[in-house]
Amino acid sequence: MNFIRSLTLRQLQIFVVASRYPSFARAAEELHLTQPAVSMQIRQLEDVVGLPLFERVARKLALTEAGERFSHHASRIIGEIKDAEDAMTSLTHADSGSIAVSIVSSATYFAPKLLALYSQQYPKVDVHFSVGNRETLLRLLQDNATDLAIMGRPPPELGTTAEPMAYHPHVIIAPLSHPLRDARRFDLQELAGDTFLLREPGSGTRAVVEHTFRQHLFQPARTVTLGSNETIKQAVMAGMGVSLISLHTLALELRTGEIALLDVNGTPIERTWQLVHSRSKQLSPTCLAFRRFLLEHAEPFLENEYAQFAFRPPKRAAARILEGAAPADLGRTK
């Protein structure tokens, strides 16, 4: 199958964007094209490849098996071209160019504020960021479709470099009416009769919860899986159950007193935010400057945002976390 000469860069760009959405109309909005123009380019690409790349499933577009395989290659090609463009740009303008940053959904509560601070200092740099669960970010890193990723747990299965960026506590939340709302230092087993609201498989938060349950030999009476942090918070406030969730998703609810933190032994679960990039990727000077900015500013920014909630280990414990100590070895202070 010799179709390389017939492919166009524009077709690959349109395909990569279209593969992220359930309809060509959504892709057309991002690309600033009409839907017929997107459809035509995809049809031409399918003619060149010789296989259908999309199919309709329950009125939504989905990638075929051929589309799934081709998307990996297309993303890598676009990523390599972007790397070349950034490298050439950085030779003359180290404070310009573009950066692609991918973040897990729990980081959406603070990462945009950090990006805004960066943009104030470097207004010529174009920062693109995408949001997904942990599995989505791993694929983007593997496909060279992102420069940097902010996530909670570095991927040992990929050749990546991970740097601890900030302390990242996870806490157990409950509705204000929960009978243990005012209890102090009780065991997780006291919540065995509660419904636990969980993120979807593949998310970093779900992995933290499952690890915690195994550590404590804990099995809740019932679990319900929900697709986002926002849905979980709303469900907790409505009295559906309790949840183990990132403290950094709770600033608004805690400030307004709409949700309760439970004082469970062993919490907060101490993790770190990690800044990750592919080991084989040559980071441009612009990207390196952005990396330094995050490593310098993320920790003090989050400390300031959440200082009033006092969920912070002593400095020596924090240093051990950042040096890679096992979270289970560290105690909680209030």
Score class of each variant (00 low, 15 high):
Leu7Thr: 05
Leu7Pro: 01
Pro22Ile: 08
Pro22Ser: 08
Ala27Gln: 04
Ala27Thr: 11
Leu31Tyr: 09
Thr34Trp: 01
Thr34Ile: 02
Pro36Trp: 06
Ala37Thr: 15
Val38His: 02
Gln41Asp: 12
Leu51Ala: 14
Leu53Arg: 02
Ala58Ser: 13
Ile78Lys: 05
Glu80Cys: 08
Asp83Leu: 11
Ala87Ser: 13
His93Glu: 12
Ser119Thr: 12
Tyr122Thr: 09
Lys124Cys: 08
Val125Gly: 07
Ser130Arg: 15
Ser130Ala: 14
Thr136His: 13
Arg139Gly: 08
Asp143Ile: 03
Gly159Trp: 02
Ala166Gln: 02
His170Trp: 06
Val171Trp: 01
Ser177Val: 03
His178Gly: 08
Pro179Phe: 04
Glu190Pro: 00
Asp194Ile: 06
Leu198Pro: 00
Pro201Asn: 07
Val209Tyr: 01
Glu210His: 06
Gln215Glu: 15
Gln219Thr: 14
Ala221Phe: 04
Ala221His: 11
Thr225His: 11
Leu226Arg: 12
Gly227Arg: 04
Asn229Trp: 00
Ala235Cys: 11
Val236Ile: 10
Val242Gln: 05
Ser246Gln: 06
Glu253Tyr: 04
Ile259Trp: 01
Asn265Phe: 00
Asn265Tyr: 01
Thr267Tyr: 02
Pro268Cys: 03
Arg271Cys: 07
Leu275Met: 10
Leu275Phe: 05
His277Asn: 15
Ser278Glu: 05
Ser284Glu: 05
Ser284Phe: 10
Ser284Arg: 08
Arg291Gly: 07
Glu303Val: 10
Glu305Ile: 14
Glu305Ala: 14
Tyr306Lys: 06
Arg320Asn: 08
Glu323Ser: 11
Lys334Thr: 09
Lys334Tyr: 11
